[in-house]
């Protein structure tokens, strides 16, 4: 279970409060108007934004003092998810060892992960030689190898077309199922939330509300969500 305990995040003159729990093994969409603090919330979980108050706990362990790389999570950003000067295989290999000193077995694991996301044989290429969808698959192959229980998605597929995005969400879903991941995904598209997530968490008015079942939330949206959705 991921707990945000009396969390308070300040940025400029803006404050976001959260006191909620996300059950392990679920997939939760973070929705809300732009500027509400969705990405800030994710940043705090990932360790890029120090909370002004409160704690972040995973399975009872306090994550707050840990640097980002030691937290039990993987994260995909909106962009810059791959190092353009490293090959595809190296970018994936970083999920096993950040210094890239890979054993023969680990290199085989990298190949297997690339195979799993449908990029078999593309290991020696540079990211620039790949399409946008393929680049996302490389990042997901790395998530597979990292084997961290939490996966944070900060709108990594926003630039992809609808079909491609759907395909990526499908891939995330199957990876999450296969590895038993707990997924937190920032999105502004209700369809994305419906497609991937069983739970949804509304951020608005300086407050992150506890997650609710996605379908129930959209079926009977509270006033703030209704305004956002324009319904």
């Amino acid at each position: 279970m991921l707990q945000l305990e009396d969390l308070e995040l300040r940025q400029g003159g803006f404050a976001l409060r959260a006191n909620l729990a996300v059950p392990a093994g679920t997939r939760t969409a973070i929705i809300g108007p732009s500027g509400a603090g969705k990405s800030t919330l994710l940043s705090a979980v990932a360790g890029f934004h120090d909370p002004d108050r409160g704690r972040v706990l995973w399975q009872g362990q306090d994550l707050t003092p840990l640097p980002p790389g030691q937290r039990p999570l993987s994260i995909l950003f909106q962009d810059n998810n791959l190092f353009p000067h490293l090959t595809v295989a190296q970018n994936v290999g970083l999920g096993l060892r950040p210094d890239l000193r890979l054993s023969r077995q680990q290199r085989a694991d990298v190949e297997a992960a690339l195979d799993r996301v449908g990029l078999a044989g593309l290991g020696p290429r540079r990211p620039a030689a790949l399409s946008g969808g393929q680049q996302s698959r490389v990042a997901l192959a790395r998530v597979l190898l990292r084997k961290r229980p939490l996966l944070l998605l900060d709108e990594p597929f926003a630039a992809l077309g609808p079909a491609l995005k759907a395909e990526m969400l499908g891939l995330v879903g199957s990876i999450a199922n296969g590895s038993g991941l707990t997924v937190l995904m920032v999105t502004h598209d209700p369809a994305d939330a419906r497609r991937l997530c069983d739970l949804a968490l509304l951020v608005e008015g300086g407050q992150a509300h506890p997650p609710q079942p996605t379908e129930a939330l959209f079926a009977d949206p509270p006033e703030a969500l209704r305004r956002y959705l324009g319904t």
Partner: peptide, 24 residues
């Protein structure tokens, strides 16, 4: 551009210099 990615992957110190900073 790449500080957060490197941190999230636990790349620090010499590794970060060798694999991220020097090549960029």
């Amino acid at each position: 551009d790449y500080g957060r990615l490197a941190s999230s992957l636990g790349m620090a110190g010499w590794t970060r210099l060798r694999l991220v900073i020097l090549p960029r």
